[in-house]
Measured scan of single mutants.
Amino acid sequence: KRPMNAFMVWSRGQRRKMAQENPKMHNSEISKRLGAEWKLLSETEKRPFIDEAKRLRALHMKEHPDYK
């Protein structure tokens, strides 16, 4: 399984929150809205998620050196 990218790290928490606030909303609609919100974030707002994704990628490479 591939490590999560920055968007996936961010959206994991956001998706849960949005699903709780809008229980009838379909997952595909939640995904569209999350994608639009992510695009509006500044580089500074994205930075912690980018850093976490880098950390996860490095850990994955260490644990699975033969993974392509």
Rank of each mutant, 00 (worst) to 15 (best):
S31T: 15
W10K: 00
E52S: 03
H26T: 15
E45R: 01
R16P: 15
S28L: 10
N22C: 05
Q20T: 08
I50H: 13
E29F: 00
I50M: 10
H60Q: 14
H64D: 13
I50L: 08
G13Y: 09
M4D: 15
P65N: 07
I30E: 05
P3C: 06
Y67M: 12
W10L: 01
G35K: 13
T44N: 13
W38T: 02
H60V: 11
N27K: 09
M25R: 01
F49L: 01
R2L: 12
A36S: 08
K24A: 12
G35R: 10
Q20E: 15
E45A: 07
E29R: 01
R15N: 04
R55Q: 07
K62D: 13
K17A: 10
Q14A: 09
P48I: 06
E21L: 04
L56G: 06
M4Y: 04
V9R: 01
E43C: 05
E29M: 02
E63R: 08
E52Y: 03
A36M: 02
N22M: 02
M61G: 13
G35F: 10
R16D: 15
S42R: 03
K46S: 01
R55N: 06
A6D: 01
K54N: 14
R47D: 04
K54A: 14
A58N: 12
N22Q: 06
L41S: 01
Y67R: 12
A53C: 04
S28H: 07
R2I: 15
M4A: 08
G13D: 15
E43N: 02
P23M: 02
R16H: 15
D66T: 07
G35E: 15
K32E: 11
M61R: 10
R16A: 14
S28F: 05
N5T: 15
M18G: 02
E63Y: 07
E43L: 07
T44M: 08
K1Y: 04
S31P: 01
E63H: 10
R2E: 15
R55F: 04
A58V: 12
R16Y: 08
S31H: 06
A6C: 00
V9D: 03
K62V: 11
F49N: 00
E29H: 00
I30K: 02
R55Y: 07
K1S: 14
A53L: 01
K39C: 09
K39R: 08
H64P: 11
G13N: 09
S31G: 07
P65K: 13
P3T: 13
L34F: 02
R47V: 05
K62Y: 07
G35A: 14
E21S: 04
E63G: 08
M8D: 15
R12Q: 15
S31M: 15
Q14K: 08
K68V: 11
H60F: 10
R12C: 11
R12T: 15
E43F: 05
K24R: 11
P3K: 13
I50T: 06
K68E: 15
F49Q: 02
K62C: 09
R55G: 05
K39L: 07
E21K: 02
S28Q: 11
L40W: 04
G13I: 15
A58L: 10
S11E: 13
P23V: 02
R15E: 12
R57W: 08
H60C: 13
M18T: 04
F49E: 01
R12S: 15
H26M: 10
E43S: 07
E29W: 00
E37Q: 10
A36I: 15
E45D: 09
H64K: 14
K54F: 07
K17M: 06
T44Y: 06
E52D: 04
L56S: 06
S42P: 10
G35T: 14
E63D: 12
A53P: 01
S28A: 11
Y67P: 14
F7K: 00
R33A: 04
K54L: 09
R55I: 04
M8K: 03
M8W: 12
P23T: 06
T44G: 13
G13L: 13
A36V: 07
K24S: 15
M25T: 06
M4R: 01
A19C: 08
L41W: 00
A19T: 12
L34D: 04
F49A: 06
R47Q: 12
K17T: 10
F49H: 06
N27H: 13
K39W: 04
M8S: 09
M4T: 11
P65G: 12
Q20K: 09
H60L: 09
R2S: 14
I50G: 05
E43K: 05
L56R: 05
M18H: 07
K46Q: 05
P48G: 03
R2K: 10
M61I: 12
M18A: 05
A53F: 03
S28N: 14
A6S: 03
V9M: 08
N5H: 03
S42V: 01
K62L: 11
F7Q: 01
P65E: 15
K46H: 00
K1C: 10
R57A: 14
M4K: 05
N5G: 07
N27A: 12
V9E: 05
M25S: 05
V9F: 02
Q14W: 00
R12I: 11
A58D: 05
E21V: 01
M61H: 15
H64C: 13
E37A: 09
I30G: 01
M25G: 04
K32D: 06
V9G: 01
E52V: 01
K46V: 01
P3W: 02
Q20S: 10
K68C: 11
L34W: 03
Q20M: 10
H26N: 15
S11P: 00
E52Q: 04
K17W: 06
S42A: 05
K32R: 12
R57Y: 07
S31R: 05
W10D: 05
K24I: 08
N5W: 03
E45I: 05
Q14P: 04
R2Q: 14
E45M: 05
R55E: 07
S28W: 07
I50C: 08
W38R: 02
N22D: 06
K32Q: 13
L56T: 06
P65Y: 11
E29V: 04
E52P: 00
E45T: 01
R57K: 12
M25C: 05
W10G: 01
N27E: 15
R47H: 04
R57Q: 15
H60D: 15
M8E: 15
E43Y: 06
Q20H: 07
D66A: 12
P23K: 05
K24D: 10
R57P: 11
S42F: 01
R16S: 14
K46Y: 01
S11A: 12
R15Y: 11
A58C: 09
W38C: 02
T44L: 09
D66K: 11
W10R: 01
M4L: 09
P3D: 15
E45K: 02
L34P: 00
T44P: 10
M18R: 02
S11W: 00
A53M: 01
Q20P: 00
L59R: 10
Q20A: 11
M25E: 07
L59T: 12
P48E: 04
K24P: 08
E21Q: 09
N5L: 02
L59G: 12
K17F: 02
M61D: 13
A19S: 09
